[in-house]
Write a protein that binds this DNA or RNA. Structure first.
Lengths: 342, 342
DNA sequence: TTGAAAGCGTTACCAG
DNA sequence: CTGGTAACGCTTTCAA
């Protein structure tokens, strides 16, 4: 027997649908007697209210749409965890979609979410995303949108992320001050803001320390393990060996380790690795990895909280939130300890 | 301007709502001329159809509810990936919920999903789940439910997983045949089917090889990294050192490595580790880990495919699908190579 | 080729 | 305290 509806209960009891509706909502203009009878039947026939039918009236769905580039990136899994926790405690449900780093899929997902009349959208853009047209459409629809982690610049939208350029500068400055000069950079896609900024910070730091920036030491790719693997091999063809490899994220770092292992390069003794990443995953990859630690769970929470605030305020304000990112030193830089003192 | 509706378009054009509806659906009893005018306006005012309002009629929502115990288990992230891929190619949307290993939350999630009238539910039960009452309710509602990975036995429901007991037996038999006798087991929760079965298989293998089963060598906990860490330390208090530790899953194995590292135990040289797990994650934890390899992506796909079949067939059949699980030998067992020959 | 009316499951408003 | 009616956004059937 499929799920019963209010009409069926009303018919059984010879009362109106309105009465049943109110009884189930425990309205105070319904007699206790009536409520009891309605509830008994509802229980008996396993009545379950129709979420979307109710929402049809209230114009509010208590659902949030989330779009991530890839859920098997540990980072995003933890972000989602943070989002979920806030969602749960504030009564929102999550519609999760994945863009697989495709702009088309992303756009399609956005449209589906708008079509579902979600109360808000959380989005980390795909690495392919260029056009901002769809985001204007979202703005028009007055459904609040908050970017997390990856943002589109120059867009009238709120975002939660880290100050990538400054964090990168800080990290590389640290590396250089520790005595290293030959620092390779396996960069993410430069068309994605975080890829670009994490590279700019690297350049900033080198320049500030009067170290010439060598284009051959920077290789651009995507954000995956495979990109890290390829990137390292690519640079390695030049027959140089770096002192330190700076990976734009932890997935890339993982690929770098793959490559080094395969090439028989000892790490951390020969080559140090530093990366953007999060503690949980970095410590699994290698205890020696030095990272700019971003807490994805926190990022998810902050993003969701900001979104809810926008929903409650009925406004699409343009707020940029930065979450902290501190250097977490692993043994990968230990050979430099002497140098640091210098 | 909030999202416009069909009525608004109809009013603008001085036609009926029905006409607009049909025009937008490209029905063939509407003139091309009319369709053009409707589409132009729809475009202009950024019309986006209301997903749930349409579904209200069709009794079909093209949404699937998914419940996982924890999304930051790499395993489930990959399962979800598999689910999403099948969903996308067959036009379903995913409502993702997380139980956090709590039976209460799980129940609440199930009710929400039923309330949303999802077309089907995919569920990996929490480690707390005992009561089957809620599942009877789901069956009553005639919404198909497929368990994946973790199942409740003796329930009239389909499931997709591996043959845990047999896989465990195979793994431990391999370990024993390789010459090891002192094999500890850090087990998952024995109240969850996979925890119980993975332990039973261990016992099976020992018995078959005439090795006495020692209760002190089995420690039961949950399925997390922390449980593995605690478990190893607990067993280690007995002042014995095992030859091999058998962890019920890869998260536990990770915790075991944490503990061994902290205790200064050399691995794989001193102690080997074997576990249930999946390649992607196992190779990140340690290249030396020997696993029963379960492909979570495949599991997700199969589960989703089975669910869709149930939906299409309009029946809640009771199908048990097993996916393959093969041993993947890592260096952690290399000290046994000689023994294997014996 | 178009439209009127009924219906999907629910809630809100107002009358009795 | 209860019920009739309209509404939410859309589709479908049947009549014009």
């Amino acid at each position: 027997m499929p799920i019963i509806n209010q009409s069926a209960i009303a018919k059984q009891l010879n009362v109106s649908r309105a009465t049943v509706s109110k009884a189930l909502k425990d309205a105070d203009d319904i007699s206790e007697e009536m409520k009891k009878r309605v509830r008994r039947l509802a229980e008996k026939y396993n009545y379950i209210p129709h979420y979307h039918a109710s929402n049809l009236q209230s114009k509010k769905t208590f659902t949030i749409g989330v779009i991530v580039p890839d859920i098997s990136y540990s980072f995003f899994a933890f972000v989602i965890d943070g989002i979920m926790d806030v969602a749960q405690s504030s009564g929102y449900k999550i519609i999760l979609t994945v863009s697989r780093e495709k702009a088309d899929t992303e756009k399609e997902n956005i449209l589906t979410l708008l079509s579902m009349r979600v109360d808000g959208i959380l989005l980390a853009i795909s690495k392919e995303t260029r056009s901002t047209q769809i985001f204007r459409k979202v703005n028009q629809s007055e459904i609040p949108l908050v970017f997390f982690d990856r943002t589109i610049e120059n867009l009238d939208c709120s975002s939660v992320g880290i100050d990538d350029r400054e964090a990168a500068r800080k990290l590389i400055d640290f590396v250089v001050k520790a005595g290293y000069k030959r620092v390779w950079h396996i960069a993410g896609d430069s068309l994605v803001d975080i890829g670009r900024k994490r590279c700019l910070g690297y350049v900033d730091a080198l320049k500030a320390n009067k170290i010439p920036v060598r284009k051959e030491w920077i290789i651009e790719g995507g954000f995956t393990r495979m990109d890290g693997y390829r990137g390292f091999n690519e640079l390695f063809k030049t027959n140089e060996i770096p002192e330190v490899v700076y990976a734009a994220n932890d997935q890339i770092a993982l690929g770098v380790y793959d490559a080094m292992r395969e090439l028989g390069i000892q790490f951390p003794d020969t080559v140090g690795v530093v990366a953007f990443g999060h503690h949980e995953f970095a410590k699994i990859i290698s205890p020696s990895l030095t990272i700019i630690n971003v807490d994805p769970y926190d990022l998810g929470k902050k993003a969701m909280e900001l979104l809810i605030r926008h929903i409650d305020d009925h406004e699409l304000s343009n707020t940029k939130v930065f979450i902290p990112a501190e250097i977490e030193i692993g043994e990968s830089l230990r050979i430099s300890e002497g140098a640091l003192v210098n």
